[in-house]
């Protein structure tokens, strides 16, 4: 049997599969459909310190081989997450990565401190890149992302690093000039891994409802863009990369790994095929078996060496 296990910082995953934050809810929504414990790690929907109502409709819109979403981080907040969602996740007995977002640095630190005390949480993914939230602190109507500013990224990761010993993952945005700079900032500040990419700023016209929808674009439409980001970032940082963006099958997953991803996150594809995570795990195993490759780690970044 080939070895599928990988390490993402301190996290030991029995295979490279995780889910992209958001579309997989709290895991329990998929419990009837797949054997959750087969997944390498679960990444939760983003939580915030206080409950967050999320954005009004329209929240999702299908585009050419893609999906535009503007959920706006709807979540019940830390307390209810811990009380009602965490025990299910813990029972699966796979690493749990909690995605978090906050209004400001102070709140990020507070949220992390509280999560750090919870044993059942293995990793924290900093959502520095949600494209659908306007700052409540300024009158600025533009969406500004921490992950668009190398200095802010460094400052944020550094402050959070100081208050947690858990695996710390910085989720980066593709809506930047040079994503490698941001990955380097995260690495310098002590992140254990970078997760890339979050969704692209996008817009679509709903002719039927005569409305515009703005949001973050995901799905197979963005795969080549995500792959390029992974490829470039692999060249510039030492820490592991969790690659996400339009992965629909085993071939896509392999491409991300060979471009430099240590682990991969499946997002939108879960909506299309709820069994996708398990199918890709089986697909990777078969690929290694057929090629007589003993360890998946041999494939990480292999495009760079050929």
């Amino acid at each position: 049997m080939p070895n599928l296990s990988v390490n993402v910082g301190k996290l030991r995953l029995k295979n490279p599969l995780t889910v992209a934050s958001g579309v997989f809810g709290w895991g329990e929504e998929f419990k009837d459909l797949i054997d959750l414990k087969k997944i390498g790690a679960i990444t939760t929907k983003t939580i915030t310190l206080k409950p967050k109502e999320g954005n009004p409709q329209p929240r999702i819109f299908e585009t050419a081989s893609g999906l535009l979403n503007s959920i706006g981080l709807e979540n019940p907040g830390l307390d209810i997450f811990v009380k009602e969602k965490l025990s299910f996740l813990k029972e699966i007995r796979i690493p749990v990565i909690v995605s978090i977002w906050a209004n400001d640095l102070e709140e990020f630190v507070e949220l992390t401190k509280r999560l750090n005390r919870i044993r059942d949480i293995d990793g924290i993914e900093l959502n520095l890149s949600c494209p659908n939230i306007k700052s409540s602190k300024t009158k600025d109507q533009r969406v500004r992302l921490i992950a668009q500013d190398p200095k802010a990224t460094k400052r944020t990761v550094k402050a959070i690093r100081r208050v947690t010993s858990k695996a710390l993952i910085a989720k980066l945005s593709p809506n930047v000039t040079d994503i490698t700079e941001l990955a380097e900032s995260a690495e310098d500040a002590g992140a254990d891994a970078v997760s890339l990419i979050n969704t692209f700023f996008g817009l679509a016209m709903d002719w039927e409802k005569q409305t515009l929808i703005t949001g973050g674009l995901s799905g197979p439409a963005i795969k080549p863009l995500a792959l390029r980001a992974v490829y470039e970032v692999y060249k510039s940082v030492e820490i592991p990369i969790i690659g996400t963006g339009g992965i629909m099958n085993t071939t896509d997953a392999l491409e991300f790994i060979m471009c430099g991803a240590t682990a991969i996150g499946i997002g939108t594809a879960n909506l299309v095929n709820p069994k996708i995570t398990i199918e890709v795990i089986d697909g990777l195993r078969n690929y290694l078996k057929n090629r007589k490759i003993a360890d998946i780690k041999e494939l990480i970044g292999s495009f760079h060496h050929s």
Binding site: G22, V23, F24, G25, E29, F30, L33, K45, G54, R59, I60, L67, N69, I71, E74, N270, L271, P274
Partner: peptide
């Protein structure tokens, strides 16, 4: 979106 209560779309 998903039909199973996960995506909140």
């Amino acid at each position: 979106g998903c039909g199973v209560g996960a995506c909140l779309g």
